[in-house]
Nucleic acid binder design. Structure first.
Lengths: 359, 359
DNA sequence: CTGAAAGCGCTTACAG
DNA sequence: CTGAAAGCGCTTACAG
């Protein structure tokens, strides 16, 4: 690569002039028109690009954003989110650097996650290493895709004091770190409304936040007494979904509709329904959350509450850019959208859920 | 962050000594034991980490690898591949920087790709911009995940002359750029063997390379005359798969087995089979290629030829590290693996494929 | 055994 | 309108 020195000597001016002219192409007051033209032309001829390390060392800004996370959280669709963030950041001149903390990159619960399998001490050490890498590199900002827990929040708070940081996918849980996420209340409301309108009165919620079932019941408060919402908190993987269908049959056959806070979890129910000969949605309605690719490629296609993945990335990028400019920002809370497909329909009228033997 | 200067003054030595001792912790000949201890301790106390830009500027090495690509190629499972590469590169001290060229990050044919939708001129401009970014940043090596075509190969060849580069997912098509990929012949052989053993004699191939059908026939040459392999080259998306099932019914009902060079494509066939009431695998065997997450979450679960995604990333990282050390390397050609699931079975005995009306 | 000096490529006051 | 100088943080011969 040509350096500023070569451009300067080739154009017959000093490096200060080259630097100034190239960095302020529209300021006419600092160099004569001829000089400026000469510099532009020489730079073009040698395909001069300023060296990022030289510039960074001098200005103290790297124009790099690090993305810190144990990537691969169930179905968070993180690839699309990174895509959204990367487009926004690049438009503003920032590059994106990966800083993996854990076991897995992509949404995929086939491969174990570090947080699930490392000991707490190991996990914390990996996290601290990742933080060190970020510090060494001198990134200007950080996108936090890691799950924030009581065990690691101190690390992130320390870091956020030195470098602008934005949490994505969920509230950070501390005021110093602004966050991008989809309004959890709205997710419940969209699903509850859809189920209620289709006549569902006995609903099972899988995963989600504590209190979700209360929220839904509250939303249904104007309705009669014939309604019930139950919840199984620790149910999120595909295999969990398969297993839960058996529990429904045995323990709560009155359920007509299921809201799974995770498309993969919902997919497990659909899979098991096929093996058991239970017809979806005629016998049981299933709603997922996220709208991952899978959800429109299984049979029947999954009704789901879409969490905008790309948009979350864009919003996180925008927030971080504002933060790096020194602005104060507030959380960016996005809205979900109901996508009606074939896995949900009118509640069955005929008593309890039963298995028909498959033909 | 503490700088070397602060450590030096705190430890009462010069910065040269600090730098030397910290970079050669095991060399005892250059500083007294006491001095060394003092430096180590001070560095630990201030959590000193050398500034990557300062070091990079001086040494001419950034310890950063750029990944260049229009990420999101159908089902290439690129997230896992990046994960594999990132682990290997990090162990060797390298960071990974994203350099997107196109529209989409993640495997997903729901969102259009730049190469499909930009004009050739636009696309080339985006690519050139991405190359410029890589040059500006001074990356030490490049992972090329872009599809190499006649239209863009010159750009990559130019770049490979300046910076070590490794192509992943397919042969680069030029000797200057070593590549990592799965042996395409082996993919065909694994599928052909499986189909043959299950009694399939009329097979349809979707996608893949030109000549695949000839290869399979060649592999079957010792068998009798009753065999036929056809191929539809331009068939790769989920919707393509849905459509092709209708073509099979109408134009080639003698087909008993389908080999789709793409799991999403195969998933489309399974989906359409369900809507038409065609039983898989009893009436038609379907084999995919890749083993993406989807393939074990649809019903019936998909038999597929697995292309090792993480391993491809690891191999690419290893190749690139060797290249950056100045070694000469050769292509790394990996082997696929057949994963038997429920979408394939014994060839049906009863004449042509027909639709049964769904109950 | 230790330190002073040069220099990587750049930007930014400052001087003229 | 233009240039000389300082300095960002580091490493590496070189001198002592």
């Amino acid at each position: 690569m040509a350096t500023i020195k070569e451009i300067a000597s080739e154009a017959g001016v000093s490096i200060s002039t080259v630097s100034y002219v190239l960095n302020h192409p529209d300021r006419t007051d600092k160099a004569s028109k001829e000089t400026r033209e000469r510099i532009f032309e020489t730079a073009r001829k040698y395909r001069y690009k300023p060296n990022a390390m030289g510039r960074g060392l001098r200005t103290g800004r790297s124009f790099t954003v690090g993305i810190l996370g144990q990537l691969g959280l169930y179905d968070s669709n993180i690839g699309n989110t990174i895509y959204g963030a990367s487009e926004v950041l690049r438009s503003a001149g920032y590059n994106l650097e990966l800083t993996q903390t854990g076991r897995m990159w992509q949404l995929n619960d086939r491969i174990p996650l570090a947080a699930d399998h490392d000991s707490p001490a190991q996990y914390r050490r990996k996290l601290a290493e990742a933080v060190d890498r970020l510090l060494t590199r001198g990134v200007d900002g950080i996108l936090l895709a890691e799950v924030v827990t009581e065990q690691n929040i101190d690390l992130f708070q320390d870091l956020a004091e030195r470098i602008p940081m934005v949490k994505v996918f969920a509230p950070s849980g501390c005021p110093e770190i602004p966050s991008v996420y989809v309004d959890p209340a709205e997710i419940g409301v969209l699903a509850a409304q859809h189920l209620w309108e289709s006549g569902h009165r006995h609903v099972l919620v899988l995963g989600g936040r504590a209190g979700t079932e209360a929220n839904i019941l509250d939303f249904w408060k104007n309705a009669g007494n014939e309604k019930q919402v139950r919840r199984i908190p620790d149910c999120r993987t595909f295999d969990d979904g398969r297993a839960v269908l058996h529990r429904i049959l045995q323990e709560m056959p009155e359920v007509t509709g299921v809201l799974a806070y995770n498309d993969n979890n919902a997919a497990g129910i659909l899979y098991e329904a096929q093996t058991l000969g239970i017809r979806i949605p005629e016998q049981l309605s299933v709603i997922g959350v996220n709208n991952i690719e899978l959800s429109e490629r299984i049979y029947p296609r999954l009704t789901t509450v879409e969490l905008p993945a790309i948009r979350q990335g864009e919003a996180a990028g925008e927030l971080l850019i504002a933060l790096m400019k020194g602005k104060t920002v507030t959380d960016s809370i996005l809205s979900p959208r109901l996508i009606r497909r074939e896995s949900s329909g009118t509640a069955r009228m005929t008593g309890n859920l039963t298995m028909e033997k498959k033909k």
